[in-house]
């Protein structure tokens, strides 16, 4: 059964410091007052436009096994192909911060206010990523009381377009999830609209199952390698679980 959820505005809104970090301003750096004001202004605009919704559907390992290969364009070897068969549970998901925010970003750029447009864009991207993490946390919380051996289970989201999962995989994912019901559509290039949306699969697995070495062919082209941070977040998380 597909579940839809509307997120409270606060849950979809990153805090001031997170926005600065996403703009490349490290913690501890002196923040010029005009930049701080710009972030405040963009956060206000964001809060009036954000319309955050998400949807998810449980899926079996076998069912996901039919979705993951897409139309055969995944990398020769990927981390997820080794991770998902180890899952206790899986769920497809999609979230968006909504079209009004995206329209406002375009409007600001069209009107020559790139400073505010860029800051709003950063907030929307960070907000969308945060919502994907919220979906993962909520899915993990759903394990409460589901058995004595779930304390080691952690949930991470994995998305088409990353780590060897070709973006064309969106087509089969969308067929199974049907996020059009919450306003997320796919174009012919497999890109989502609204642009500030995240889709993928939530993998609930023993924390060690999420770990992998960065020795894949595509890793050399990866600029941020934030998979390390994601993996550490589950491997080092000793206080969570059920």
């Amino acid at each position: 059964m597909t579940d839809a959820v509307r997120f409270p505005r606060a849950e979809a809104t990153p805090d001031h410091r997170t926005v600065l970090t996403a703009q490349g301003i490290p913690d501890g750096a002196e923040v010029p007052p005009r930049v701080a004001s710009l972030v405040d202004e963009a956060l206000k605009i964001y809060s009036t436009h954000v319309d955050a919704v998400g949807t998810s559907v449980e899926i079996s390992i076998e069912e996901f096994g039919a979705i993951y290969p897409g139309d055969g364009r995944n990398a020769h070897r990927t981390p997820l192909e080794a991770i998902y068969p180890e899952a206790r549970r899986l769920a497809l998901f999609a979230i968006t911060v909504g079209e009004p925010v995206c329209a406002e970003i375009r409007r600001l750029f069209d009107h020559g206010d790139a400073a505010l447009g860029y800051t709003l864009d950063t907030i929307a991207s960070t907000g969308a990523e945060g919502l994907a993490d919220s979906m993962a946390r909520n899915y993990e919380l759903g394990f409460s009381g589901s058995g004595p051996d779930v304390s080691n289970v952690r949930v991470l989201p994995y998305s088409p377009g990353y780590c060897g999962w070709h973006v064309s995989g969106q087509a089969k994912l969308f067929e199974a999830l049907r996020p059009e019901g919450i306003g997320i559509t796919l174009n012919s290039s497999f890109l989502m609209q609204p642009l500030k949306s995240v889709s993928g699969v939530l993998v609930a697995a023993d924390r060690e199952a999420h770990d992998f070495d960065i020795d894949f062919a595509f890793c050399t082209d990866c600029a941020d390698q934030n998979c390390r941070e994601r993996i550490h977040s589950v491997l080092d998380d000793s206080g969570g679980g059920q």
Partner: peptide, 14 residues
Amino acid sequence: IFLPEVLLAARAMT
């Protein structure tokens, strides 16, 4: 300087 400062400068230039 950081990118937002460049963009604010560009806005001032405009």
